[in-house]
Design a protein around this nucleic acid. Structure first.
Lengths: 217, 217
DNA sequence: GTCACAAGGATTGTTGACAATATGTCCCGC
DNA sequence: GCGGGACATATTGTCAACAATCCTTGTGAC
């Protein structure tokens, strides 16, 4: 879903994916000006396409636009990242509770095996693999919760944190702490305990917030 | 904030406010096609402005767009309204808890007087005034909570519910129930009790969800 | 030396025309 | 009578040129 860079895309879609990738990869640093004409030439599309893409990214919260002064890559400060994560906290809590309510046996078995894979990744010292599994787990929980609205909001919030999440994954000792929190979420969902699942999800993101606040600078 | 129809607006802003108003007022019914050229002539702006406005409204969740087939007013089903309200529930819970934490004495005094005004509005049988005060209260709580991120998400969600909220306000007996729930939220915030405020806010929106589900059709 | 002001340059916002795409219809073959 | 394919139409997506706006820089008066 996230990665569909089909060749036959329309100009706007092309500009959109290109810009998303560039911002995510850090090629465009926060605060950098995004001049429509430059981007148009860079991506080989017209200014109108770039313009549409910039509008969409503005709505997604990735770029900032001032009426007659242009667009810049949005800078997400640490306090803002904390506020975003607080919202994620309650929304993921909602999803975890719903998942505990609605999950089928097979879905829960999948979650458990995902948890096992995460445990192995940490044991083997593969932070990148762990990070990928981490995303899988959150996505899976949201899918089970069958809450498209919450899921969309979470996507939106997540999109603004690419830079911070990247920094966080590299902190020593973080994966081990994160792992036990994730396993607690899985256990509560497996127990069909909505309140417990919500509490576990919240505890996890509270811990992410603490880590964020320590790492300011 | 919501109503700024300044005359000197740019074309896109003009189209945006006009479309918002038209959809909110019900002039454009859900499912209705929104043809760019028609709207452009109707509002006296160019197609590009209408286009930009439609993109923004799509991001806001008010209209639906399929790539080469145009835009329609988005239809929000009752189950979807429930899902939206569930998200509101946890986010407003977060804001209420934060408000209980951060509110100054004056701010809390304001909330209490707002609650008094609501009580009077119900006693006097003025549902419209009550509804306005209701919006004021929620806005005020969010302002005290100082959570721009959550606030923005709530705005977005609220925007999709205009039609349903309208129907809900007219239900008999609803204001009285709603009033006591609101007073409970205010009391918990005044007691500086974050957990209690969150629980009260959740209880309130849970009751809204129940009312929504009863009123399907 | 500093402030006010005006010209210049760069960038966004707008306009109208053009191309691409999807839908609906009609006719033809079976 | 029914299904399939080509045409006509309506609508969106794209393009290049124009107008409006804002920032910068340079100049002159005090």
């Amino acid at each position: 879903m996230g990665t569909t860079p089909q060749t036959g895309e329309t100009g706007k879609q092309l500009a959109l994916t290109a810009l998303r990738k560039a911002i995510g990869a850090g090629d465009m640093v926060p605060g950098q000006r995004l001049v429509e004409a430059e981007l148009a030439e860079l991506f080989g599309v017209t200014r109108a396409s770039v313009r549409a893409a910039l509008l969409e990214l503005t709505a997604a919260g990735l770029v900032e636009r001032v009426p007659n002064r242009g667009a810049r890559v949005r800078l997400v400060t640490v306090p803002e990242a904390v506020a975003i994560t607080e919202c994620r906290m309650v929304l993921e809590g909602l999803c975890a509770a719903k998942a505990a309510e609605l999950g089928t046996d097979e879905q829960i078995a999948e979650l458990i095996s995902l948890g096992e894979a995460m445990r192995r990744a940490v044991a083997d010292g593969e932070p990148m693999k762990y990070s990928a599994l981490n995303r899988d787990l959150h996505a899976r929980v949201r899918e089970i919760a069958a809450q498209p609205v919450a899921s969309e909001l979470l996507d939106r919030l997540q999109g603004q944190l690419v830079r911070h999440r990247f920094r966080l994954a590299l902190r020593a000792g973080r994966p081990a702490k994160s792992l036990s929190e994730h396993l607690a979420i899985i256990a509560a969902i497996a127990d069909r305990d909505p309140a417990g699942a919500e509490a576990a999800a919240r505890a996890h993101l509270r811990s992410v917030i603490d880590a964020l606040e320590e790492s300011d600078g």
